[in-house]
Design a protein around this nucleic acid. Structure first.
Lengths: 104, 104
DNA sequence: ATAATTTTGACAAATTTTGTCAAGACAATA
DNA sequence: TATTGTCTTGACAAAATTTGTCAAAATTAT
């Protein structure tokens, strides 16, 4: 079982806070309940469009959800080792440099 | 034209240092010369297996190539904004925590 | 026990990735 | 400048991955 905080956990918590079955929210975001179940278990990640609908439905920040989704995608895609760590630092540096130059 | 340092540039530099045509190295790593051309132009990224063969052929560190490849993949996949930046930091933190616990 | 909900695996459809080919651009050289 | 070899590019097919659904099993609640 997946134990650490995750997008799935967050979504499940939000849903349970409202006492709503998968069925209802799945319908709201136009997917099958089984897919939402998988999302809540971090077996699948929501698409951008699903994230948008979820953010709207739960009235929370899309950006916040997107951050977690990207982080999880990266974590599941690459091994948790120093190579990946170095790659992340480089990517970070490039974005920082890009954002820096964009302004002053 | 792509101007910043990149995996493609590095590979092209290595190849040119040997004065070898695409054809030769492409053959060594079992791909078409046109694909290697695209790789050198950062239009495509090498697969893991291609990276391995390239590292061997040029007698350089596979890890070093992999780091750059992953960084470039991330950069081309996600927008260069603060959301991605936050996501990268989270991914980094998770790997660090994983690597930390793994040892002492 | 029954009914509702949730989970899971198998699968089809859609999308993305990967590699090749062929034609054209470019460069070097006779 | 004609010829030959090299490099680049777009279009495309094949392969791989992702995405979503269905149906059946498992779990939970009534």
């Amino acid at each position: 079982m997946e134990t650490k905080p995750s997008l799935g956990k967050k979504l499940r918590t939000l849903r349970q806070a409202r006492n709503e079955p998968l069925r209802v929210i799945a319908a709201m975001i136009d997917i099958d309940a089984s897919l939402l179940s998988k999302i809540e278990h971090s077996e699948r990640l929501p698409t951008e469009q699903q994230l948008e609908k979820l953010a709207k439905y739960f009235n929370i920040s899309l950006q916040e959800l997107t951050v977690i989704a990207i982080a999880e995608k990266i974590i599941t895609t690459y091994p948790a080792d120093t190579i990946t760590l170095q790659a992340l630092k480089i990517a970070e540096a490039q974005i920082n440099s890009y954002l820096g130059e964009k302004n002053g």
